[in-house]
Design a protein around this nucleic acid. Structure first.
Lengths: 216, 216
DNA sequence: GGAATTAGTGAACGCTCAGTTCACTAGAGC
DNA sequence: GCTCTAGTGAACTGAGCGTTCACTAATTCC
């Protein structure tokens, strides 16, 4: 932390101060740490300010409230498209991707989602932005995996809709919100095998679904 | 309301009081009304007490906090299995069912879900109970529709997993939480046609999904 | 270097509400 | 009628939100 460790006056106002982006970064780091430790509901502006060695008024000068601060603190947590390993099969790739999202949702990103839905901030700009980024990124990443599978020669659905690409992700998010941050491996496998594969590669689906013969 | 309209003493403690289940019902009604008007985040124990013409201490005698109160207020809102109309096709039935859940989620039930996920009460007994009831009921209702379709001779998946039966519902809930209580008709149609039908009746799926020919 | 401006700060404030306690007393049961 | 129990309005404490303020560290400009 950039605050010098020299003897400091009793009144912190007389002490060295950060300004602009340096201060913002310090506050965002503190917010991320608080979010991780106490969750969205337990996080307070006062404690973020303390942790960041900043004045509460400064937080309110930069952010109009908790949601906005949380959004800024977590917005860089989403994976980039080029970082996904190639497992050699769509199923393997989807398992990797969902594992990555589960891991992210276990930390501050999951708490940000929780906070924003809990406060019913559907029309709030920061909420709309977080949702757009998360859903858009999920769809984009999933689509890239499906395209990669097609290039490999796998029999995949060529016209998967956004809703189908997003389905497994919505289910995972809902699962984390409803059940807590620890997602069992079998849950991930189930989401991939029972939902994503049937929707994205129906012809290569696993025997979880058996057709009933037509009535005579 | 069962409080007589006669002249009342200035000190309400000297006024007639309800007891037991009568009082509980009054408080639950008030909670439901507040939940509907202000959402979970905006609802306060003080205002519920006022609205119910009850003492705040009485609320805390019966319920250990807001989540528990909200759970009790909303637990009877779930539809019973026998109440679903038969439209003559699985698709029609699913549209009816999802329309019904969307309608429920627009009101206090949606706010209860929002509150409980927002407070990260995954392990809280009332949260676990609400989740169990809602998910269990959704799966049960959906399964009954699939069975009815099979009885009608429709070509449905005979071994749909719980996750597949629950998938459309999780997506709907996540949609309401993320986007707000007004669910467009086309969203419901999309959930049914693009996710539920392919999972529950793959052989009768609509042309939203087109297979890509195998690579030569 | 000095002046002017700007942003950051600790302290303080008023407000709301959660959760609790208390003395009084309406209701219920015997 | 008596005893016990649950319900009540009032009051309380403490936490945290959002705001204001006087002071002053930082930055910019001449």
């Amino acid at each position: 932390m950039g605050i010098p460790a020299v003897a400091e006056p009793a009144d912190h106002r007389r002490r060295p101060r950060r300004r602009g982006e340096t201060l913002r970064a310090g506050i965002l780091d503190a917010a991320l740490a608080e979010l991780e430790e106490t969750g969205y509901a337990g996080m307070t502006m006062e404690r973020v300010a303390e942790r960041a060695h900043a004045g509460k008024a400064s937080l309110y000068r930069h952010w109009n409230g908790k949601a906005h601060l949380v959004f800024d603190a977590t917005r860089r947590a989403l994976p980039e498209p080029g970082t996904l390993a190639d497992t050699g099969s769509l199923r393997g790739d989807l398992l990797e991707l969902m594992g990555l999202f589960a891991h992210l949702l276990r930390g501050p990103l999951g708490e940000a989602v929780r906070g924003i839905v809990g406060e019913a901030l559907a029309r709030e700009p920061s909420a709309a932005a977080l949702r757009r980024e998360q859903e858009g990124r999920a769809v984009e990443l999933t689509r890239s995996l499906v395209e990669r599978a097609a290039d490999r020669g796998e029999n995949v659905a060529s016209g998967a809709t956004e809703r189908q690409l997003e389905a497994g992700h919505a289910i995972l998010r809902m699962h984390v919100l409803a059940h807590g941050p620890d997602v069992a491996e079998e849950t991930l496998v189930g989401i991939v095998d029972e939902v994503m594969m049937p929707l994205l590669a129906p012809a290569s689906r696993r025997p979880a679904v058996r057709l009933r013969p037509p009535r005579p």
